[in-house]
Amino acid sequence: MQEELITSGRNIPNIDPFLDIWHWPISVYLFLGGLAAGLLFFAALITILKKDKEYPAAVKFASIVSPIALTLGLLALFYDLTHKIYFWRLYTTVRIESPMSWGAWVLLIITPVSFLWVLSYYSELFPKFKLNFKFLKKFESFLQKNRLLMAYILLPLSVVLGVYTGILLSAFNARPLWNNAILGPLFLISGLSTGAATIILLSKSTKERHLFSKIDLGLVILELGLIVHMMMGMYAGSQVQLEAMQLLIGGEFTMMFFGFVVILGLIVPAILEFLELRGFKIPVAVPALLILLGGLIFRFVMVEAGQITRYLY
């Protein structure tokens, strides 16, 4: 028998009996950040490949979502801070070793650029609401000329943003479920997949929908592979990692993880997308919405389950 008790009656809010410092805003932010990273990545990539006329949803319509997602995500992050008035301290220093510092700086650049990106498409997006000031029109045409430059800025930054949502968690070696290097690529791929799903939802052309269905199918298969990879790594890991994995396999998060993330969020939409590409009549919104919902639940599962896993007690 081995039993450990804290006899001095420690019962600190959000720490005991298990850690619960990061609540729903963090999960929501990780989802929105990944989504924005995916959308901006595709917008930038298609612009760089000079295919922006053929895929208007990817560069134009869906890119309205990214500044909204980033703004809501940032508000969620801010809401979860407990010493809010000192948030500006993030920007008085650069901490190379801290993923959160990386994230804060990347967000500081990528958020305004995502707004500028939408502004550069303003007259095409909102033809009824004309820009009535001369300097705004000038600014818009200036942005239009520099769209390629913005794309080159956004492409690497969106990858960093997507990876960062995973690295943020994997940097904590105290939480065995998070502490695996695959989480960075896994969250990036998941973010790109939710981005592709949003483009499918907002696209009106069959050609574009099919291209992004194909891309999304590839990403989902990749994501499933990475999830298997994560589990194999955990199973080959130390005792604490084995215990962490048991939360997902046969533990309290099994239904959420396998039922809602793996099956409903990845496998079912992948099959539906495959059938749709083969010519079956399936509304594309169904797999796209499932992907988005699965991505959101995936973040909740990882954030909540990860905080339960620990070394001591």
Partner: peptide, 27 residues
């Protein structure tokens, strides 16, 4: 340092000993 802390909770997540807590004042 309390007036540099933003209360993000990263250090609490990173501590294998659960030795840190959020003070009611936020830091």
């Amino acid at each position: 340092t309390a007036d540099e802390c933003i209360g993000c909770g990263a250090c609490i997540e990173s501590c294998p000993y659960d030795a840190r807590y959020q003070h009611p004042d936020g830091y």
